[in-house]
């Protein structure tokens, strides 16, 4: 009974991991479309960050879940899971900061036209 319950839980975790990887692929496709079709630099950078967070962090967490329940990997499955999770965490910390620095610098130096715009709080602060 307990063994059957464990097998079911493993199957569920495996399914969640597969779902996360698929979601990551969809996010990557959307990010590529947005990178080509969006009108200005800032919105395109938003699309690129979708590609990094949704297309790299989410599938890496999925990979760590899948490798946790892959018995054929033996004791190495914990290593794979830990490395994947840690990489996801690292990307989640660094990628938004990089985008933030780029956007901040572009706004400060006025390098890119801010065409479709509703409100610009940073411009108000600077005045």
């Amino acid at each position: 009974m307990i063994r059957m319950l464990g097998t079911i839980i493993e199957q569920i975790i495996f399914g969640i991991g597969i779902c996360l990887v698929t979601i990551g692929a969809i996010f990557d496709l959307l990010a590529a479309l947005g990178l080509v079709r969006f009108p200005c630099f800032y919105v395109r950078m938003h699309a690129a960050t979708i590609g990094v967070i949704g297309g790299a962090v989410v599938p890496l967490i999925g990979v760590s879940l899948i490798s946790l329940v892959s018995d054929q990997l033996g004791p190495y499955r914990f290593m794979f899971a830990g490395i994947s999770f840690f990489t996801a965490l690292l990307i989640m910390i660094t990628a938004p900061v990089g985008t933030h620095i780029l956007a901040n610098a572009a706004h400060k130096l006025d390098l890119s036209p801010k065409e479709p715009i509703l409100v610009d709080k940073m411009e108000e602060d600077r005045r």
Partner: peptide, 16 residues
Amino acid sequence: GLTLIVKTASKIISCI
């Protein structure tokens, strides 16, 4: 320095 976000993130990453 840069903004508060960059400061905090660079402190965390430098520890790692």
